[in-house]
Design a protein around this nucleic acid. Structure first.
Lengths: 167, 167
DNA sequence: TCAACATTGTTTCAAATGAAATAGTTTCAA
DNA sequence: TTGAAACTATTTCATTTGAAACAATGTTGA
């Protein structure tokens, strides 16, 4: 989609709540930052999820399910993405000698080098993009999100509609 | 993936910034809320993006590109999703008499009924899930995200790496 | 007018995602 | 020890997504 910042024309629905507005903004901010990340990685031979896996992998190897837990996605999603990273030479799979179920995702030297090059630029760009918030506001935002995050993981806060604590 | 809330075992990297922490939390909160939405719609004959389109459509019809603008996605994404909503009988396509390029997405009576049933429950569940934040904190979060959102749409704030203002 | 240009939606392809089923491995309690 | 249950990763399938190319339509300025 376009990154244009023209006025959009549509209006916010009148039927809303502070919670819904906050969530809608959260989705929009997420969407824009994701779009910028995609743009940054253009020409770097990497997609956003590929870059994320690189960030969670290490030279000594990290179990695939640890990566999927940190990325909050299913193991099955990562199989294909890791396959593509292997094809590009940035990671390799090694069996865990202590648990033959586990497949360790290891950065290759090329992958480690890519990361050394990309990560600082990535952080710096994020910092610049959030300049519209003061240092204090960034910390405020972080604390609010931390608190919301914890609350969301506490089953009792989620709802009373009969959701099991683990699906 | 699982909704289990067990301790995860991995530690936050030491090499981080408040901005990166805030962004990571934003992604995590987004991911959890998305997962809960998916769970809510299970058994409702709808996926999350299908439900979003229903929310943006109307009886009188809304141009597809207005919906894609609000969802911050490409038109091409919506073609298939709308096709499935049509197959389920919740929307229909009607040509815009004033502009023959435009295809208006119209809620059917079944779609409008589905929405009347689902929307209030959806909002109420979101409200409950955000109970870990006080009313004031929700408003604070909303204002911070509003401010961040505006800043992200101001090209000057994004970066100095040569990004065009419109790609 | 009409020729460039922009807009709208679709098609196509590759990549990512969610969910269920499966095979191999480990854990644990009877 | 062994059988049931849990865990790990993969496979498979349907859906969603991003990006580019395209056809049809609309807009604009010489």
């Amino acid at each position: 989609m376009s990154l244009s910042t023209e006025p959009t024309g549509w209006q916010q629905s009148s039927e809303t709540t502070p919670e819904l507005e906050a969530y809608t903004l959260l989705r929009q901010v997420h969407s824009i930052l994701e779009m910028y990340n995609r743009y940054d990685l253009r020409g770097e031979d990497l997609t956003v999820p590929q870059f994320m896996i690189l960030n969670y992998a290490s030279r000594s190897g990290v179990p695939l399910s640890e990566i999927s837990a940190r990325m909050m996605c299913d193991n099955s999603n990562l199989t294909g993405i890791v396959d593509r990273l292997i094809a590009k030479g940035y990671v390799e799979r090694r069996p865990d000698p202590n648990d033959r179920r586990v497949s360790l995702i290891c950065l290759t030297e090329a992958g480690a080098e890519k990361l050394r090059n990309l990560r600082p630029r990535h952080h710096e760009r994020l910092r610049k993009r959030m300049r519209s918030l003061s240092e204090h506001e960034v910390q405020q935002l972080r604390e609010l999100l931390r608190s919301l995050y914890s609350g969301l993981l506490t089953p009792d806060n989620n709802d009373r509609d009969g959701r099991p604590s683990d699906m």
